[in-house]
Each structure stands twice: as C-alpha cells, then as structure tokens.
Design a protein around this nucleic acid. Structure first.
Length: 888
RNA sequence: GCGCGGUUAGCUCAGUGGUAGAGCACUACAUUGACACUGUAGGGGUCACAGGUUCGAACCCUGUACCGCGCACCA
C-alpha cells in the first residue's frame, strides 16, 4: 500500500478529483431514472459577480444536501445558473465605460449599449461558475441556465402576456420609489429605510389677510415648499377653526388653502402639515381626498425644476440637498424660519445606488399578486417549511400586507416589456397613441415597444421551474424542488414570489384533486435560510470596508474542504456568523487530522473494504469506538437527526468531535498496542474496527469535505471508483460485549497524566505508576498495555507506594513516583480538589437531607444522588489521606 | 410603535428542569514512529437583570435593560 504524504495537500487533489467527477458524469441528473428525485435550484448569482463568502456558505450547504441525497439513493438534480441582474450589471458596465472611455450610456444607442453588456457578460460571465467548481459544488453543469437565455426570455414574456390578459398586470400613474441615481423606479422591497440626521425646520405660513398671524409648519424638506398645495390640520383639533382660510406659501409665493384631514397628528411637530402631493406618499393620498393638484418641482435627477420668475427662482436647477440648505437660508432671510432643530428621521435609500429615494409620481407597470390566500396557507398547512421556523411569521406578515408590485424599470439591460404602442405623429413628433397591444412579437410597422424593462425579480420568480423546461421530462421528474437554500434578505424579493408563481402558473398542471394540484406545484418544500456573514467586529462584509476575504485565497491557503468544513462548523442555524480566518484554519487542521489517521492505518497493511468487526474478537477499546459510532448514528439527537433538521453545524461538530477525540485520541492510541504485537488476539478485530468505522466516517464526512474523503476512499482502497456513489450510513449496532472498562481506563489515564504534570515530569518521559484497586478489577495484559502506553509508564505495579502521591480514579488509587514533588504545589492542588469535592458533597447532602425533595423528586434521580454521595465520600477520603501524607 | 431573534469562559458558540460544556485564544511542558496543520496538562463563568412557577431554574412564565433584524404614512 502506498504511503500517504505526511500532510494533506489539497492543491494536489482538488482539481484532479473535480475533473474526474465531471468526466464521470456523476453530477448529471437523469429524468428517466427510477430513483426517487431530489432537486435544488441554485439561487442564481449575478452573472458578472465574483464568489463571496456568502456564496460559499450557501452553496456548500446545497452541496451537502445534494451529495447526501445522492448517497441515499436519490436521483439528484442540482441546477446551477446565473442572473442577468438588470440594474446591477448595467451600472457595472456603465462605470467601466465611464472609466475607460469617458462615455456614458447615452453616448450609445440602446442596442449598442446592450451589445456592450453582452460582450462584458461573455468576458466575465463565467467567473463565478468556475469558482463554484473550485469549491467542489456537485451541480449538473450541463443544465446551467441564464435568466436571459432565449427560452427563458420567451417564458418571461409569455408570463407577462398571460398576466396582462388576466387583468393582473396594469399600467398606472402612481407614487413610486424613484432612484435619482439610477433613474428608475424600484419596488417597495428594494427600499432600505435608513436613519438620517437632518433638521426639522419650523416655517411660518402667513395667514391671508392677517399679516401678523401665521401658522408654523415643521418640515424636514423645505425645498419642497414650492410644491405645497395646502396646509392640513386635524379635524376638530386646535386649528380646526382655520379650515377654509388661506395661507401664503412662503417660497414661490401663492395662496393655498387650509384643509382638515385625519392623517394629521396633533402631537407631532406643530400639528400642522404641509401637503405636497407630488413629493410624498401620504400627501399624495391627502391630495386625492381633497382634489388638490400635484405640483412636481423635481427633475428625474432630483434637481429643482421650477422655472420662471418668482421669489424663489434662485433655487431652480439646484440639487435637492443644496436646495434644502438654500431654501432654509432664504426663509431665514425673510424672517419666515422660526427655528431649526437637529432631527433624526428615516429615509428610504436605494440598495444599488445608495441614493435617497424620491417619492415620485410616475407611470409604471404594476402586478396585482394572485393566489395570496393559497400562498399564506402553504406555510400554515405545512406544505412548505421554513428553517428556522421563525421566518414563517415574517413571510405571513408580508403576504397579509401585500401591495401591488411595481415591475417596470427604466433600465436598458433586461427583459423588455412586451407591450406595443401605435405610433402617431403630432406636429412632426413621434408619440405613442392610445392603441396598445400586449404580445411577444411586434404587431408590425407603425408600432413601438414599451421602452421599459422588467424588474429582475420578475424573471427570477420563475426560476424554480422555468429552468427545468426541457424536452426530456426534467420538470415532471424534478419539480417541485426539494429544498431551497438562500438568505432571509430575499424572503420577499424571491422566496415568496417563487411560491406565488408556482401556485398561479401551475407548471406541473392540474391534478385530480385540488390538494394534489397544490402539492405538484410547490416551488420547493423546505427553505433553509442561512445567516449573514459578518467580520470579527460584527460588521457586514462589504467591498468598501475591505473586510471581505476572497474565498479563492482561502481555498488556496486552506483547501476547499478546509474552507467548507470550517465555515459550516461555526454557522449556527438561523444566526449571523462572525467570520474569523482562524476557523477556516481549524477546518484545514481537521482534514489533516483525518488524513493522518488514515496514514497511520496504511502503515499496518492493506485495509479490508468489507471489514466486519463484529465477526472478530475485539478489545474493549474497539468496542468503545463502535459504541460511540452507534450513538453518533442512532443516539438521541444524533448527527443524522441534526442534518435532517438542517442543523448543519451541529452535525459537523459531532463528526469533528468523533473523529478527533473518539477515533484519534482514544481508539488510535489504544490500537497502537495491538499493532505493535503481531500475535495480539485482538489485532484483527482492531484492524477490522478501524476499517469499518473509517469507511463510515469518510462517507459521513463526504458531503462536508468532498475532496479529502474521496482521495482517502480511493487511496486506501475502500472503493476503486468514487465515494460519490456509495451508500449513506444510517446505523451501526452497539457491540453486545461493550462495558465501561475502556472509559474507565481512558479517564484514569487522563488523571494519571495530570499527576505527572504536577510533578513536572515531561510527557515524553516514562514514569512509575502503581494502581491499588479497591474492588476486584483485573486488567488484561493488553488493557494494562494500553493503560501504560496512555500514561507513558514503566511496567505498572499494583501496590501502595509510601513515598508517592496518588489520585483517586475510576480504576482505584493511582500512585506516581519519581520526579520532584513540590509540597507547596501539591498542597495547593489537593486543597483545591478537596474544596471542590466538599462543595459537591455538601450540595448533594443538602438534597438528600431535604425530605420534601426526596418525596417529590423521581426515585431514579434520588438514586443518582446517593451514588454520587458514595463516590464523593470516597474521593474526599482519598484526598484527605494524600494531604495528611504530604504534611506528615 | 409593533413583530422576530439574541444576551452562557477573553472570543465564537453548544446546552429546553437535576453537580455549568466544546473549540479557539491564553499559560506551562514536550520535537515520542499518524499528525507541530501535533501531543500533554492548566487557569478561566454570581449563565444580562428583577420577580414568579417548581422539591429543584442557564433552561418554563412575567417584566426590565441592552444588541441585531424586519415591518410601519409620523411631517
């Protein structure tokens, strides 16, 4: 058998194995397979994006689910792909062109510019999918999709036309969230409320006919005063008597009425509200109620647009924030600013451009969501489950308060809206006439398509099933999908909408019963929401902070498995993750540990892939390991249960603990005794146990750390081809010969080593130990060998050693001699131990002395306390003896 | 303001009623034949706070404080 390298070297392994997997077609899903299906669609990353730690976490989890499902005998489809990410991609390309050619998108025609984006996509579009391969993702690359593929594009258009015909999509003029940075409307879900420090300006509005009387209005936006059309007060409130009177608008002076409206809260500010219907959502509603005009004084870029000669002309064409300052100054100069006080309020920001959103009256396309009741029932009836469950409430709340979705974007890169307008000519100018048709292809000459594009999410919401629309029956086999792994930040943007799309479009058709139809058209059954990755200080990872490590660097340093395992082990379910490179280092160290356990095994000869330890005579140490394995797989709250419950970090931790402690630190150390003696009666059993357990460990770890487990599986000879197609271990019997002897020996050895350290005897130096057992414990020769080896002891003696110090162990009193006894140190240690024992004893006795407690506590518990008392008394006695000896 | 999470060792987190745990970090020792990507030992916690339920509370209930997230038309 070839000896393995001294340390695991991922760089020598990963690319070779990934190539092998791909060439072997192991990731390819077969719709004709008789195996039960398991499917996941990958949340498509931005096509021109690069891999982030968030992607690493997300995709590793999906890979774990898929690799495990494959081993469980399912036909697995993990469908990868990328998103065109309309605005984000357009912005990136615009920035590039600005930097390199000093041009804007308006220096090109729309077609030219879109062609530039396609070129950009060809150049950079493959980066992230290549990076996912580096990570080891077992996706079916033959089915990779892009949201602007020809077929996918067509599907999006079809859906639009259908919803239009159903009356669910309509065009309307409404207040929308306008981003002056990217010059497009965005949906409510894309607005980030952000706390802003500003001022509350108290502005005087003079009453018409009473030059000495005025109403004071508190506003954060004096630059919109010119668009005021009224002042509103509370009906029946303290200003109610003024309703019907007029005031003079202080900038761009004009008379405006005082009205009464319920939206006004008297407790806030001065209790008087300026009504600016064109620039505030609430004011727009008030305006509608009172039939007031909307005066728009902002350009799309949010510069003041109030031309002409009037008292505030100088504000014209100023940016909204400059205008805010300047208008406050103007008011002050005119004695109309009563005061300004520092004030913090919440302002909506656009995620992409990081610009303050401007509420703006604009004609856009909207979707009235269908199937809302059913979407709500999905979660409540348990057809779909969220993990962690608490996200369900957030989902429900959103569904219950759902608003029509603004789906049009003033962006060039994306899916065009399939609506055509008849061109009419007025005064030699081309305009869109009344006549409108909604269809995918042009109706012909004289028609022009709507210039807007669709919100990127309007294509993403079809992702779960449109990506599966192929001739070979993929959708029939693999939809509904089994699970979705994503971030809670897109629970509305994507998750909820995909569920709604599935319900409405019924991609798997109608079935016999309503409930079957429902079941057949779920986008997914389980949704796992990952946490957000933060840096050590708890800040979000971001490019601008420079605190986001490049996963590719981490892979180069620690290997893909190290990155995966390290990250998964510390990613608690449903909570954010504090990233620390140290944790990735631990992942690498773990892989190396596994590697070296196997390396040790190769030194003992060939492994037996079919090894069955239960047919051999076994040492108690082999039994102990088999026992631990049994509990790992079948115990209460075992690793498999954790994995089934999407508790990935718990499963990873249990495996880590089993490999490092049970396997390496204990079993391997004990096995050395068997391996050192060719004629040991338990040697064969130990070898078989080793191979049997390792075979299962490698398979259990494979989904977490695919490369190192595959390499070891093949190198050691557990299988010739691949670990990918092996079976997932689910159980392992508890050896009927198991006893607690091995545990006793391990524990006693730990205590013996502690003594050695007290005496300052280095761990590599042999020491003299003696064991005096109170009972009739007799160690077999090999048990004694293991005990001596763990202690690094000379031949163990079985007599009281007067000059030595001792400790009370499960095996009896363990003495050590040699080394230098430092009486002060000894006394300190013994006193400390004694204090602890006495405290425990006192606590236990208090319980046992409490009649009430004894009467009401379960008898089994009382027995436990009694047993504890006995052992504590023994321990106390032993400690006192040692102390006396030290003093005497 | 409402809702949802969280608060346990220096750090990251387990721990859903019965003697407070792990990993890392720290300290000391050790280059012993699987592994220094290591081994051995050690120090370190009134479980945020206050009440309550219980024989018994880190755990269940109520309230408070602080942190994070989501929702909300407070100008």
């Amino acid at each position: 058998m070839p000896e393995l390298a001294k340390a695991y070297e991922p760089q020598q392994v990963e690319d070779r194995l990934y190539k092998k997997w791909q060439e072997g077609g192991y990731f390819r899903a077969n719709p004709k397979s008789a195996k039960p299906p398991y499917s996941i669609v990958m949340p498509p990353p931005n096509v021109t994006g690069k891999l982030t730690l968030g992607h690493v976490l997300n995709n590793t989890l999906q890979d774990i689910l898929c690799r495990k499902a494959r081993m469980e005998g399912r036909e697995v489809l993990w469908l990868p792909g990328t998103d065109h990410a309309g605005l984000a991609t357009q912005t990136a390309v615009e920035k590039h062109i600005r930097n390199t050619e000093k041009k804007t998108r308006h220096d090109f025609t729309r077609d030219e510019f879109v062609a530039r984006i396609w070129k950009w996509k060809e150049e950079f579009g493959g980066i992230i999918t290549q990076q996912l391969r580096k990570l080891g993702c077992s996706c079916d690359w033959s089915r990779e999709r892009f949201t602007m593929d020809k077929d996918y594009k067509h599907a999006v258009q079809e859906v639009f036309v259908r919803l239009y015909n159903e009356g669910l999509i309509y065009r309307g003029t409404r207040m929308v969230n306008w981003c002056p940075g990217s010059l497009t409307a965005i949906s409510d879900e894309e607005v980030i409320p952000t706390k802003q420090k500003g001022f509350l300006y108290h502005v005087k509005y003079q009453l018409v006919g009473e030059p000495n009387n005025h109403l004071v209005v508190a506003t954060t936006r004096p630059e919109t005063i010119m668009a005021d059309v009224a002042l509103a007060v509370k009906p029946g409130g303290k200003w109610a008597h003024l309703v019907g009177r007029k005031v003079i608008r202080p900038l761009h002076r004009a008379e405006i009425p005082i009205i009464a409206d319920d939206a006004v809260e008297e407790g806030f500010g001065t209790g008087v509200l300026k009504v600016t219907p064109a620039h505030d959502k609430a004011d727009y509603e008030i305006g509608k109620r009172h039939n007031l005009p909307a005066i728009d004084i902002l350009t799309p870029k949010a510069k003041i647009n109030d031309p002409g000669e009037h008292d505030a002309s100088e504000l014209h064409s100023l940016d909204r924030f400059e205008a805010r300052k300047r208008s406050a100054e103007l008011l002050k100069e005119r004695g109309l600013l009563e005061k300004e006080e520092p004030y913090e309020n919440t302002v909506g920001f656009s995620e992409r451009a990081n610009e303050a959103i401007e509420p703006r009256l604009s004609t856009q396309w909207f979707l009235k969501y269908p199937n809302i009741k059913e979407a709500l029932a999905l979660l409540q009836k348990g057809h779909v489950k969220f993990h962690p469950e608490f996200w369900t409430k957030t989902y429900e709340h959103w569904i219950e308060n759902i608003q029509d979705w603004c789906i049009s974007r003033q962006v060039w890169w994306g899916h065009r809206i399939p609506v055509w307008y008849r061109i009419v000519w007025t005064d030699d100018k081309k305009v869109h006439g009344e006549e409108t048709v909604c269809q995918i292809t042009s109706p012909g000459e004289g028609w022009e398509q709507d210039p807007d594009s669709l919100d990127t999410w309007f294509s993403s919401w079809l992702w779960a099933y449109e990506t599966m629309r192929t001739e070979d029956g993929t959708r029939q086999k693999f939809y509904p999908t089994s699970a979705l792994v994503t971030g809670p930040d897109i629970i509305f943007l994507w998750v909820a909408r995909m569920l709604i799309a599935g319900l409405h479009f019924k991609p798997n058709g109608e079935k016999a019963t309503e409930s079957e139809t429902l079941e057949a058209n779920l986008a997914f059954k389980d949704v796992y929401f990952t946490g957000l990755i933060r840096d050590k200080q708890g800040r979000k990872l971001s490019k601008s902070l420079g605190n986001s490590p490049d996963p590719l660097d981490l892979i180069a340093k620690y290997g893909a498995d190290g990155l995966r395992f390290g990250l998964i082990r510390i990613a608690p379910q449903g909570a954010d993750i504090r990233f620390d490179e140290k944790q990735i280092e631990e992942g690498r160290n773990f892989c190396n540990k596994l590697w070296n356990i196997c390396r040790f095994r190769t030194m003992q000869g060939a492994i037996d892939p079919q090894a069955d330890p239960f047919r051999h005579t076994r040492s108690i140490f082999a039994d102990e390991l088999l026992d631990r394995l049994h509990f790992l797989l079948e115990g209460e709250r075992n690793a498999l249960v954790a994995l089934k419950a999407f508790n990935f970090s718990e499963a990873a931790s249990q495996l880590y603990d089993f490999v490092w402690n049970d396997f390496a630190s204990r079993f391997v150390e004990a096995a050395k005794i068997d391996f050192a003696q060719a004629d040991s009666p338990t040697r064969a059993g130990t070898l078989a146990t080793f191979d049997y357990v390792m075979s299962r460990v490698l398979r259990l770890l494979h989904p977490f750390a695919p490369f190192v487990t595959e390499e070891l599986w093949c190198e050691l000879g557990f299988g010739e081809e691949t670990i990918l197609t092996t079976t997932w271990p689910t159980k392992s019997p508890r050896p009927e010969t198991w006893s607690s002897r091995a545990q006793g020996i391990y524990l006693s050895a730990d205590m013996g080593r502690s003594l050695r350290a007290d005496l300052g005897i280095p761990s590599n130096q042999k020491a003299y130990y003696s064991l005096v057992s109170a009972g009739h414990l007799i160690l077999t020769e090999s048990e004694r060998g293991v005990f001596e080896s763990l202690l690094n002891a000379f031949a163990l003696r079985f007599e009281d050693v007067k000059a030595a110090i001792k400790t009370f162990t499960p095996l009896g009193d363990l003495y050590i001699s040699g080394g230098v006894i430092d009486p002060a140190l000894q006394k300190q240690r013994l006193t400390k131990d004694l204090a602890k024992v006495e405290k425990d004893l006192e606590q236990t006795r208090r319980k046992l002395g409490d009649a009430n407690m004894l009467a009401k506590a379960p008898p089994a518990k009382v027995e436990e306390w009694r047993a504890l008392e006995v052992s504590l008394v023994e321990k106390e006695k032993s400690l006192r003896e040692s102390l006396e000896k030290l003093q005497g």
